[in-house]
Write a protein that binds this DNA or RNA. Structure first.
Lengths: 214, 214
DNA sequence: GTCTATATGCCGATAGAC
DNA sequence: GTCTATCGGCATATAGAC
């Protein structure tokens, strides 16, 4: 006789709910300020039950941190893959920036928790997470380096620093962006434009920046 | 007879030491993860003694938050005041950005603690701090608006968003800048240049900046 | 899978000696 | 100005019933 498949019960569902709740609480109350009791309560469970799904508080926070980077990383890779190989600088930037920011703000609790608490988490947890973060940073550096090799980016500046500036500008949006006020695509376009062309009134004219100083 | 002036004991000294220690611990362990016992121990005191200088943990964190913004604000105002009234865009940016970043990284524990824990602090504390933060944001907005009025900034983008982008790019430095690797003035110049002119190889054409790099 | 019950320990804050 | 002693409360984690 066939054995009826064992119901997965709701193991996967509970696990996911715990992670989402934990991310939201970590974001608002920090690592130490988020208690297993609070996570459990918001999942309609008791604190002890969490240990069926996770070995410890640190196992939960480690997974929350990884999700916060991985979702953004995946979204950007996928978006950039759709670009033609010779896409202009500003289009490439707009595409990557919008993908980053859309994933960032879509998984707000995970990404914001990541940014806020990474520096406050026990060292072993942070160390375990750093490799993923560094891979994502190197991905962007490779992207910009490729643009420079195709003469789309001027020389003279350190692109690893540019990546840091860009990450700061994008990630800070977790602290100020509210959907109601402006469309994400507009925000992303504006940042792409700023990074590509700067604030300066356009160099348009023949004489260019001559009158800058005068 | 003259009464000998009562020694200030070391009230002011202890107070300052408590604030500096608290800032460092808040930065690394978060709001909830920083205990009064830990602060006191690093000041060679006992936990109860802190209550001679501060009414509560929240009184300490409130002052740490304010210092983190006030020092940067003061430094930028002072630096900008030295500029000639018609200073070009890139010079103004370089001056303000460098002043912001220098103060930011000089008071590292206060500013970094501010950025990291503001979202995790009890609501009354956060609310009490927000006015100062907003004043500083408006100061930068006024700065950029003034530049636009003098036709140094092109139209078409929202300058309040530009301020957010810029704050993100600058403040993120608390997470990656290490003095050993590069001079702060170089970092600030590079960001000013990025914000003023962008990454794009220069609008190439006729004359002007034809080539930065070569 | 989730519960109850509990072990062990640290938390913020206060009172009062010195 | 700093100490000791202590209050009531809540933390993570474990053991074992259901």
């Amino acid at each position: 006789m066939t054995v009826a498949p064992i119901a997965p019960a709701d193991a996967a569902g509970s696990r996911q709910q715990i992670l989402e709740t934990a991310a939201r609480l970590f974001r608002h109350h920090g690592y130490a300020g988020t208690t297993l009791r609070a996570i459990a309560t918001e999942c309609d469970m008791k604190a002890g039950s969490l240990y069926y799904h996770f070995a410890s508080k640190d196992a939960i926070v480690a997974e929350v941190l990884d999700i916060g980077v991985q979702r953004v990383f995946d979204a950007v890779k996928q978006a950039v893959a759709t670009l033609p190989p010779d896409a202009p600088l500003v289009d490439t930037l707009r595409c990557a920036i919008e993908a980053h920011m859309r994933a960032l703000l879509l998984s707000h609790d995970f990404t914001s928790a990541n940014i806020r608490i990474l520096g406050q988490v026990p060292e072993p947890v942070r160390d375990g997470h750093k490799a993923l973060r560094r891979r994502y940073e190197r991905y962007w550096l490779t992207l910009l380096t490729g643009l420079r090799q195709r003469d789309m980016v001027r020389a003279g500046n350190d692109l690893s620093r540019t990546v840091f500036f860009l990450f700061g500008a994008m990630n800070w949006a977790t602290e100020w962006y509210h959907e109601r006020k402006s469309a994400l695509s507009v925000v992303a376009s504006e940042l792409a434009d700023l990074v590509a062309h700067g604030l300066h009134t356009h160099d348009t004219l023949p004489s260019a920046r001559v009158r800058d100083g005068v």
